[in-house]
Design a protein around this nucleic acid. Structure first.
Lengths: 219, 219
DNA sequence: TAGATTGTTAATCGATTAACAATC
DNA sequence: TAGATTGTTAATCGATTAACAATC
């Protein structure tokens, strides 16, 4: 009987997917939860528990078939969905992020790029021309994108996300510090807070060893 | 009596810091855990519990003094440490990340940028010239950086991180998929796995509503 | 003083780990 | 069949929430 799926399990799936892709590419066809656990720094128990949320992927006495498991997790993650996606902000971060979306089997398909800087209008990124933000509304009406990637600062984000939600955007990959999920509880949001990540590292790097030991013991 | 500090508390600190900065900038000098909880989408209980890990920041019957709390959390996060930091990889991602490190009070100070692409050697990013990777070893011997930011693909990362660890690097901000923490258990690593984040969003965006309901109920 | 709100402990909830029967 | 390893339940552990005494 399959277990309940929790958000913590889902957050581990992409990492499983990467490791399995690597094993597959190295011609490994079979792996036990024990060996995968060693490679990934997890417990065998957790791996079996995680995979079991989605139904029996393994075989008793044998283990898991790597290519099969890889394909199944890919299906769960909907890597072939090709969700129509727009990118707002074509600075360095936007360009870097565009290449991630463009990656084969990311689950998304980049269909439009927008920036308020007129100087870069018409420039081509990942095969897509940069449009001025003025054209955003009409573009959405015409093309009905489902996902928006936010690579601009937080100023005036409320207006922008209000508009995008009104135009049918249902999910956000948010690199700004604006809290889209609080402003729009009805949409799906995945945040990448670079400054938060950096400050966490600052704490870890600059705290005294004694302080860190207190933490690692609880980790 | 102060509570134990856990990694989950620490991961919340930068967000508290951002919210408090915003409150401070808007001239708000006093806030209760209840009101802060409403603004941040947390429980008042959790906020009091979190702050109490680091000692009493508030006053019964009054609440918390915003500028004071902001300063104290900044101290805990060591935002003024100015840890000497090098950046490996000066592509779009590297450039975007350099600007984050350059931000006032990130806790870090960018002292060197390296890239294996000779064509961009000498280019200036955030006031720092890009050097060819060949100079990395000598630069570290001369300048003793403590933190390295990895903005290159995973290929041959083992060799690179071996060298950096040997040269005294003690913490990594890792944007590659190479698992530094598994290869070097002695160093501190903060990972930003953009592809993992994107695939999590793919799951959330493309899964059926029924599936998501099962999850949100457990969230 | 009375009201408000913290600090702190206890209760609850959920996630991870351990154990083992099922079965390949 | 015997050995290996999963699927699954129970036990443990940790994090969050609730409650309330302390106190400003």
């Amino acid at each position: 009987m399959a277990q309940e799926i929790s958000i913590s399990v889902i957050k581990r799936l992409p990492r499983y997917y990467r490791f399995l892709e690597n094993l597959k590419d190295n011609g490994i066809v079979r792996i036990s939860s024990k060996e995968l656990a060693e490679r990934m720094g997890l417990t065998a128990s957790q791996i079996r528990h995680d995979f079991n949320c989605f139904g029996g992927f393994g075989q008793q006495g044998y283990g898991y078939n790597v290519p099969e498991l890889y394909t199944k997790i890919g299906k769960i993650l909907c890597v072939d969905a090709g969700v129509k996606t727009i990118l707002i902000g074509a600075g360095n971060l936007g360009k870097a992020v565009a290449s991630k979306i463009f990656t084969r089997q990311s689950g998304f398909k980049l269909v439009g790029i927008f920036d308020k800087n007129e100087a870069i209008s018409g420039k081509i990124i990942q095969g897509i021309p940069v449009r001025h933000t003025n054209y955003l509304e009409n573009f959405c009406i015409d093309n009905q994108p489902v996902c928006a990637v936010i690579c601009i600062p937080s100023n005036d984000m409320k207006e922008l996300t209000d508009m995008l939600c009104r135009l049918g955007i249902r999910s956000f990959w948010n690199f700004s510090n604006f809290d889209i999920a609080m402003a729009h509880p009805e949409v799906l949001v995945e945040n990448v807070h670079l400054t938060d990540s950096l400050m966490t590292l600052s704490f870890l790097t600059s705290s005294s060893k004694e302080e860190l030991e207190k933490i690692s013991s609880a980790e």
